[in-house]
Design a binder for these strands. Structure first.
Lengths: 338, 338
DNA sequence: AACGTCATCGCAATCGTTTGCGTTAAGAAA
DNA sequence: TTTCTTAACGCAAACGATTGCGATGACGTT
């Protein structure tokens, strides 16, 4: 009904007192008489006065807002991260601004500028696959905005990082395939320009080595989507010695591989074991259920936010570079049991 | 490195001119000499000056921010809605603030207050299951903040609404079960205090009637989660005449039902056909693949945002109450084919 | 009577930016 | 020389709220 919202001046005018008095009355300042306080509070309630956060921000230079840049919100992992971020921020009275890069470098840059313009107090970021140049993020850091990286981290920053131990997780996952009798284990790899891609490949290699299996380059195929998994399977199963186990760098890829195998009449896990990565909501819904590495997205988002908020409260605070969130192997049915 | 960010005054002081001149120079005002403009622009670039959006907001009372209140971001449907919102908002130069209610009424109220304090220019909301009192939303509307409801709408508002035709969608889904030979069709229903729950039940009933099948109350069981689906199946399959078709109000419930049936050695769809609702990402990943109703979450979010932005630009604008986003039946493998 | 005390309140500056209006000086027109 | 234009810029108020400081009266104290 009303065009603009109620301000402190509206209250002052209606009561015939000054804005300062209204302001003080509202926050129970001792200089104000109880009578005046009562009048002010009553009218404020009646008029549904809500302090203008924008004006407060301008004066205090505290916006109570933190930002998040993520690749794509529709991925279960990222939306669970956001959920963790939101819960912790909410507890601390902070609001969250979400920015998607959609895996585009250009958009990530625009997002960073928007974050700066809006004087976001801190930013959490998981970089896009396309991002190789980090100038836009340095700009944020140079402007005094605390940064925390999570999952897809960038190097060369003093910022804290929250990640899982990708190497260890990949090692453990691959090791499980070895232990359960797989002899020829393939890896569907993430882009190698991302640290997570590199680390997971490394973990895979080391687990093979420690398990006494040879590392063969032809068993590593770049694929990180359902569609690419189809190509991967087409390629892998036509090798002279097709794999009997597959470690995929994420669940979607794993499921794509599983479906592709089943279409070709291979049995999972009898003919080929499949190990995913991320433990998305749907890994429970496949047949067989997908074995995977639980990445604890919620916890990751929550932890990143806690660190960021501490950093905002005390700019000198640092968790100490890198916080590693635990992962755990979730063995379901897509891997053999002995 | 720097504590605070560069302002127009910093530029003015360094150049020995007034802030007004800097402001005008930056926006290419004709009153300013080319020489001065050059100096100002050069220094602004060098100092990485970014206008303070907070100060601009205070002056213009335009925050360029819209808000969204959703139940839970981790649901594929909602995160795809957000994705649509974000894309359209981004195109229009708006930022998005996300608030989760986590299906809690209390939190929804707090969120509404935060939205008001932050002078969000418009709000999209999908109400929580717990919400029966809409005072907090009326407060937003009374403060002149345009509202657009989507999916889980509230009644008694002048705001626009974006929904799917739940009745029609449920009708079509049920009809497909009828057409493919199901004679005893059960319905796993959403909470009946939500309009979507009521409409879907209604569509189910009408499809039965038009298909010449009797409506039996014992075939309707409230269940809208994987866990509750287990109870539902336990109950339904012990009926004197157990169902040979199930229409669930969402995919998760449908999948839960499917798994519960399979654990009991029933074949899907030979013994029991299953129809879901929402067409989440994972309906493709089950075995058999789940037939469902595609709810087009992205399009819904995008459309709601378009309407909201128009309403912000012109407070008198109204789409005309209710925009219905198309749905379509996605027939996969969990329903019989003849 | 003169002064101090204290409760209660208003003034004005501030945050960063915009903008209507006034000011200045140089050059043109008379 | 005087007056009028005009280009180029500065002053100050405004957005909404906060806050140090000063102002005002009503008291009580000597």
């Amino acid at each position: 009904m009303k065009g603009s919202q109620v301000t402190i001046k509206d209250i002052a005018k209606e009561l015939g007192i000054s804005a300062s008095t209204v302001s003080r009355a509202l926050k129970d300042h001792p200089d104000i008489s109880v009578e005046t306080k009562r009048m002010v509070n009553d009218l404020a309630k009646k008029l549904r006065y809500k302090p203008n956060a924008v004006a407060l921000s301008l004066k205090s230079s505290r916006t109570n807002t933190i930002g998040v840049i993520i690749p794509e919100i529709v991925h279960y992992f990222f939306s669970s991260v956001i959920s963790g971020v939101e819960d912790v921020a909410y507890e601390a009275g902070y609001n969250v601004m979400i920015f998607q890069s959609n895996e585009k470098y250009e958009r990530e840059v625009t997002n960073a500028q928007a974050l700066l313009s809006n004087r976001t107090e801190g930013v959490m970021v998981s970089v896009s696959k396309e991002t190789h140049n980090f100038e836009h993020l340095h700009m944020l850091e140079d402007s005094g905005i605390p940064l925390v990286f999570f999952d897809r981290i960038a190097t060369g920053f003093t910022s804290d990082k929250v990640i899982i131990d990708d190497h260890k997780a990949a090692y453990t996952a691959t090791q499980h395939l070895v232990k359960t009798g797989c002899k020829r284990i393939a890896h569907l790899a993430a882009p190698q320009n991302l640290a997570i891609g590199e680390k997971r490949l490394e973990g895979y290699k080391n687990a093979l080595r420690d398990g006494g299996l040879p590392y063969k380059e032809e068993y590593v195929y770049p694929a990180d989507s359902v569609e690419l998994a189809e190509n991967a399977i087409e390629y892998l199963m036509h090798l002279p010695e097709p794999p009997d186990g597959i470690f995929a760098n994420n669940d979607l890829t794993a499921i794509g591989a599983m479906k592709a195998l089943q279409r070709r009449e291979y049995r999972v896990p009898e003919d080929v074991s499949i190990m995913g990565f991320s433990a998305g909501r749907f890994s429970d819904f496949t047949t067989p259920k997908l074995s995977s590495v639980d990445q604890h997205g919620y916890e990751m988002g929550a932890e990143a936010t806690r660190i960021l908020l501490k950093r905002i409260a005390n700019p000198n605070y640092s968790y100490g570079d890198t916080k590693v969130v635990d992962t755990n192997l979730v063995i379901r049915e897509s891997t053999r049991s002995i």
